[in-house]
């Protein structure tokens, strides 16, 4: 059974990638996560300056998933040198997620990431709860083009654009590709709100947060399917994976790799093994030898 996939220029031993923002704050965290069998890891989104993040509560429970408003907490991009150092020998591709508000912030961090020898860059243009550093950027196709072309023209590693529920998703994707992105990561969390009925107040200190988990899975599948159909490019499908069949679904829709996040809160890191076993059984039962045969299958 061959679980290897090609994600553009990257070779992955399997398609499961740690989604950005889940335990990717430090090299030691990523190192530990790397021991659980992932095909690749994405760091937390790094910014120019260190960010403390929002006050607690940063997480809200809803019946169909989680809301988070972490507020892009991170130690600042200079810390990436130490992250790289402690990940020297993990043997799987590391994707660095970058957030910012201006083109030069993205390019400064991106060239540093390239210099340090990381494997790919993910531009987070879709964080739904930090003003001026997320969703609005991705909503503006012309600005998307500026950021992506600025970054792509100065780095040698693949660039992915992480999108969310933008006003015109296909325009954002199109401009990302025009700007030189190799592929798309879809999707980020969706802006949402939870109110505690006894406290009679929003649960999150930031009021608004990003919805992740099972609730967003079918939306993410739709978006991956549409992008693959229109452009046939490498896609990292992310959103609401809770078991192996959700991963297969993303791959059938056109994803070459699949990010997992929220499920780690409930199932722990061992969920990777459970997912990989499920995929193998499925391939055996259904008579597939190579997982890559399935990419975009439902679209054909």
């Amino acid at each position: 059974m061959d679980l290897r996939v090609r994600l553009g220029k990257l070779e992955l031993r399997n398609p499961i990638i740690l989604a950005s923002g889940i335990l990717g704050l430090s090299g030691s965290q990523l190192r530990r996560v790397g021991e659980y069998g992932f095909g690749g890891l994405t760091t937390k989104s790094y910014t120019i300056e260190a960010r403390r993040g929002y006050d607690t509560p940063i997480l809200a429970y809803v019946k169909c998933g989680l809301l988070n408003a972490v507020g892009l907490e991170n130690p600042g991009y200079r810390e990436l040198a130490r992250v790289r150092e402690s990940l020297k020998d993990v043997g799987i591709p590391i994707i660095v997620s970058i957030a910012g508000s201006k083109v030069d912030e993205f390019t400064t961090i991106a060239s540093y990431v390239d210099e340090l020898g990381f494997n790919a860059i993910e531009l987070n243009l879709s964080c739904p709860h930090v003003e001026g550093m997320g969703l609005e950027l991705g909503d503006d196709p012309n600005y998307v083009y500026k950021i992506v072309s600025g970054v792509s023209s100065i780095v040698s590693i693949p660039v992915y654009v992480k999108i969310g529920l933008h006003r015109d998703i296909m325009a954002t994707v199109g401009k990302s590709l025009d700007g030189g992105a190799e592929g798309i990561t879809a999707i980020n969390t969706i802006r949402a709100l939870a109110i505690d009925v006894y406290a009679r107040k929003p649960v999150l200190s930031n009021v608004y947060g990003g919805l992740s988990g099972p609730a967003i899975h079918p939306i993410a599948v739709r978006i991956v399917y549409d992008i693959y159909r229109e452009y046939g490019i490498p896609i990292i499908g992310v959103g609401g994976v809770s078991s192996w069949d959700d991963v297969i679904e993303f791959i059938l829709a056109g994803a070459s790799a699949v990010g997992v996040g929220t499920v780690i809160a409930s199932k722990g890191l061992d969920v990777v093994r459970e997912i990989l076993d499920g995929i193998k059984t499925y391939m055996m039962d259904e008579g597939f030898k190579e997982l890559s045969e399935l990419i975009g299958y439902a679209n054909k």
Binding site: G21, L23, R31
Partner: peptide, 19 residues
Amino acid sequence: VKCGVGICGSCELYNTGLL
């Protein structure tokens, strides 16, 4: 401690990766 469920990474014990 921020998220409490092992996903945000803010509560790492020294540089061990332990939460």
